[in-house]
Nucleic acid binder design. Sequence first.
DNA 1: GTCTATACTCTGATAGAC
DNA 2: GTCTATCAGAGTATAGAC
Lengths: 206, 206
Amino acid sequence: MTRHETLRADTDRERILFASARLFREYGFDKTTVRQIAEACNLLPGSLHYRYRAKEDILVDMMRVAIEKTIRGITEASVTTQDPLQQVRAALQAHIEVLLSGDDMMYVLLFEWRSLRGAARKEMIRERDRYERCWATMLEALKEQGFIRPDVDTHLLRLIGLGAINWMATWYKKGGRYSLDEIGESLWSVISRGILAPKYIDMRKT
Amino acid sequence: MTRHETLRADTDRERILFASARLFREYGFDKTTVRQIAEACNLLPGSLHYRYRAKEDILVDMMRVAIEKTIRGITEASVTTQDPLQQVRAALQAHIEVLLSGDDMMYVLLFEWRSLRGAARKEMIRERDRYERCWATMLEALKEQGFIRPDVDTHLLRLIGLGAINWMATWYKKGGRYSLDEIGESLWSVISRGILAPKYIDMRKT
DNA sequence: GTCTATACTCTGATAGAC
DNA sequence: GTCTATCAGAGTATAGAC
């Protein structure tokens, strides 16, 4: 396959994924028909079938892209500083921004994994675990270094924190009452005061 | 309608709602067929249709029951004490317990409202707002009385806190690593330290 | 109130011409 | 690679006997 073909393929793939993501988000995976998807891509159903043999294949491919984007987001954000606290702060903000910046695939990733069955679902659960392990590693390191109070269970903390962020996808509206920065700062304000050892609380930057 | 008929109707209604909730949770609303529901209730599709004219009607009725249960849960919990901090603590635990105690309808309430369209969806949004206003009232009162630091935005706090709880429905497993009490205590530990004015932090009971 | 039987629509997926 | 045409099956909802 030549470089040109690769680029074309990526373009087509992305056009299908973006259009599908918008539809899956608005109507849900089950209520979206392959005819709708094809129409949104200016393709006929038969042509779409040539790219993706089944509707579920589109969903799986979309989720792979979305989770990769999320992992890349928090990874790149957290390497911009050496300060362990700032790394977590940056990763938190990155997760919020990747999730809420308007990419419908992120929304689909969170709420449509139930539409997957069998092997595809297992694969996505593995991918999600891979993402969560990034957080587990960060938080455990922070605790070992004494930043986090000993009585805090980092596993539960991760579930609570990521839950608060993921749920934002249900209420955040672009251009609404809060900016992404305000949201991130509020969350960090609560969580950092809630979990840090006393001597570090005043070291937080917002 | 006699008392006997009322009870019968409620019983039938509940049988249908419980069975539907289990199916909606397991397969999703869209993938659940009316034939499946009827079979799970030991009814034939025609008989089920006599009770509920459309599948969506079952979902709406179920959500009404679930949201009423939630509101009753936090209301009854918060009146057991006069201490404003303990009221919020109790309401928080009540929300966790109502949500995670195993009632499939609660799960459906959280994740299937997207399957509603038009008037039904609007009604559910109103109901959800009614519930959230209970929290808004509690939190604003707490702030006015000086328990919560002035820089905390109670609206955002509510969204963050309820998000953390609601997301628990995606990961909590009965009999798993954490009990409902542990989960509630961890969340309260983080949030209370995170938002309370300094002089109240040591007044918290866990 | 409950059942049998079915109408009618739309779905995902495919076959095969071009 | 893209299109036309169509399949087999599943979906909701209903009509009408009992």
